[in-house]
Structures are given as C-alpha cells and as structure tokens.
C-alpha cells in the first residue's frame, strides 16, 4: 500500500512537472500554439446571403460533401475552371482578384498560385497586416489550401471574414493546389512575386 502510494505520488509529480515543461516549451517555441485561440472557427450560414439564397453554388455539384460543408459554414465554393478564369481575368493584374494561400511556409515556398498571398491562419500575426489590406480592396478573394481533406482554406476564409473581409467576396477553392497542379496551371516558387515559375510540362 505504501509502495503504491509512493509510486502514485511520483507519477503525479512527473505529470505536473511534464505539464509545466510542456507549457513553458510551447510558450518559448516560435511554432507554439495559443491556449485561447479558436483555430477552427465557423460562421453561420445565414450570415452570408450569397450562400443562404444560392440556388446553385459556383462550384456546381450539390452532391460534393465538401461543397455542402462549405455551404453550411456560410462559404462559397469555386472549382478549378472558375479559379483558372479568375487567374486569366485582367482584374487579377489590377489586384481586384486576389488569391490567398492558407498553407504553411514550406509548401507555400515549394509552389503557389502566382501572386498568391500567404495566410497561415494558425499563425495569423505573421501575415494578417499584409493580407487584409490586399483583400479589402479586392472584389473577389479566392482562398485555397492543398485540397483533398484539407480544411485550412475554410478556416482561413472565416478568419479573414473576422478581420473585416466581406463574406460575399470570399471564395474557397475546393480542389486546392492539388487540382491546380493536376491541371498543369502555373506555379510560382519561393516568396510572392519572386517571378520564379515551376516548369509546366504539357
């Protein structure tokens, strides 16, 4: 009994010390998370009339569960065709159409839609000051992540809405960079405006 008590006490001490180490390491780490931040925010569908009243979503395909999930979250979905059209639209050169890449540094540097701003919503303080003014003057903002199961573009869009970007201008590119690359559309390497492009093989 005495031994069990002593081992139990030891376990409690280890647990408490481990938690203290964890919180300290997290506080010191540049990659650390914040305890109080909601990293997976949502908006109500009814807040975005473009979605609530939409008979057909721009991404067409009501059966697509991702599109349906976006609709439920009050966000508009767009497909590769629509995004490629936006990319070729003269408004893109006038920065009235803006692309926002919601991935982390490494995948962003490896290749992004040319001219896309980086906005990693898990570390918003790094990008918000640049991205928000660009989005505020844009008529059409396309937010994307890798594609597939990735939900980062949705959360980034909600975060941008929280920073003052109207929901009506925000669009989530469901296919993400996976589909963009599959369609062999251009990719910019490195930082925004680096003018270094990945070779497109057709």
């Amino acid at each position: 009994m005495r031994v069990a008590k002593s081992v139990g006490f030891e376990a409690a001490v280890v647990f408490v010390a481990g938690m203290a180490v964890a919180l300290l390491a997290n506080a010191l780490s540049p990659l650390g998370l914040r305890l109080d931040r909601d990293y997976f925010p949502r908006v109500e569908t009814t807040k975005n009339p473009a979605v609530a009243n939409a008979a057909v979503s721009p991404a067409k395909g009501g059966a697509n569960p991702v599109v349906e999930r976006l609709r439920q979250r009050g966000l508009q979905a767009v497909d590769t065709k629509a995004v490629a059209e936006s990319f070729r639209d003269p408004k893109y050169l006038e920065e009235r159409i803006v692309f926002v890449d919601s991935r982390e540094d490494a995948p962003y540097q490896a290749g992004h839609i040319p001219g896309a701003w980086q906005f990693d919503h898990y570390h918003p303080e790094r990008h918000l000051a640049e991205v928000v003014p660009a989005c505020l003057v844009a008529e059409h903002v396309v937010v994307y992540c890798q594609g597939g199961d990735c939900e980062d573009s949705e959360f980034a869009a909600v975060h941008l809405h929280g920073a003052g970007i109207p929901l009506e201008t925000l669009h989530v590119y469901v296919g993400g960079l996976d589909e963009w690359s599959r369609e062999k559309l251009p990719l910019e390497i490195g930082s925004r405006g680096s003018q270094r492009f990945q070779e497109v093989r057709r």
Binding site: V14, F15, A17, G18, M19, V21, A22, L23, A25, N26, G32, L33, L35
Partner: peptide, 9 residues
Amino acid sequence: ICLPWLEAF
C-alpha cells in the same frame, strides 16, 4: 500543446 512534450519529458 501538452501531450507531445509530456511524452518527450
């Protein structure tokens, strides 16, 4: 935050 560091500790 805590689980990974606790494991490593």
